[in-house]
């Protein structure tokens, strides 16, 4: 498969603190690549380095075969970037905001009007084309920023937390468009929303402590946990002290937590669950819940490993 984005031993310091260290990974052409990680882990910086907004300190970044060091303008012309914060020309209407930037990406002015009308219909903001951004809701602004970054059908689309703090309606509008109309583009998005990463990407990387901890499909990530599952036991009354003593000494229990009458834990061994359940049955229990591992669970696992 052809690579759209390649990082080779990239390092970046911000104010003398190492943000990214010896970072290497690749994104294949046509994939929807989700980069998840805690706040401040460097997700946005990676997107900004790809789009040439900030410079790396070390290493090499290739975008569609072009090196960012010497072909930056070429790279900028084949990407579409959606920043994390609202960035509009507040004195331009929504239409003009999209029109001007699409023209700067080299779109033909004759076909642009139709394209803007089409995308505004698909993304449900056609009634706001002649409004000013200041008067729009946050969710609508995000949708318009998304439209502005994809209007020119770029080969590579970089979305920096596209649906952060966006309500479900606009969230589904954005993801529907990504899934239905941008199949030919490579989509690289960062998110803190694990459900978005799980549902809308076909490759996930987890950024932690300046480097990629996991990189693969969600199924592979789940497999790499060797059957890690989340268990919850809900007692009718307060969790008995005897029970807490017993499970505290069990090394196969991962990340256990107690709250009044609910006991939660992770484990890769189902037998552990049955043994714990056996102890729990000494008291009266109300419910039990066994769930497959989600991306959030894996991420929590990484945080535990590192703590």
């Amino acid at each position: 498969m052809e690579a759209s984005i390649t990082f080779k031993s990239v390092a970046k310091k911000i104010k003398s603190e190492t943000l990214l260290a010896d970072l290497s990974f690749g994104v294949e052409k046509g994939t929807r690549f989700a980069l998840v990680g805690p706040n401040g882990s460097g997700k946005s910086s990676i997107i900004k380095m790809i789009s040439g907004i900030i410079q790396k300190d070390k290493g090499t970044i290739y975008v569609k075969g072009y090196e960012t060091e010497n072909k930056l303008n070429k790279i900028k012309s084949i990407i579409g970037y959606m920043p994390q914060n609202s960035e509009f020309d507040l004195d331009l209407t929504v239409y003009d905001n999209i029109y001007i930037y699409a023209r700067l990406y080299g779109m033909d002015k004759n076909s642009l009007k139709d394209n803007i009308e089409k995308i505004s219909r698909l993304l449900h903001f056609n009634n706001y084309l002649h409004s000013y951004p200041k008067s729009l809701s946050f969710g609508l602004k995000r949708v318009i920023m998304f439209a502005r970054s994809v209007i020119h059908n770029p080969d590579i689309i970089l979305l920096d937390e596209p649906t952060a703090n966006v309500d479900p309606k606009f969230r589904s509008i954005i993801w529907n468009y990504v899934c239905n109309y941008l199949n030919k583009s490579t989509i690289f998005f960062t998110t803190n929303n694990f459900n978005d990463a799980q549902d809308y990407s076909n490759r996930i990387a987890i950024l932690y402590n300046g480097n990629i901890k996991y990189n693969g499909t969600f199924e592979n990530l789940v497999n790499s946990t060797r059957g890690l599952a989340r268990y919850s036991i809900i007692f009718k009354d307060k969790i008995p002290n005897d029970f807490i003593k017993i499970i505290s000494s069990n090394p196969k229990i991962i990340n256990s937590s107690f709250s009044d009458n609910i006991f939660k834990f992770y484990s890769v061994d189902k037998l552990v669950c049955f043994r714990i359940l056996k102890h729990a049955l000494n008291s009266e229990i109300e419910d039990i819940d066994i769930s497959n591992c989600s991306l959030e669970d894996i991420f929590k696992g990484i945080e535990i490993d590192n703590d």
Binding site: N73, L104, Y105
Partner: peptide, 15 residues
């Protein structure tokens, strides 16, 4: 300020 404050402007293919 339009350049300083805008990541988006800086991502455009403008020299």
């Amino acid at each position: 300020k339009k350049i300083y404050n805008s990541n988006f402007m800086n991502s455009l293919p403008i020299t």
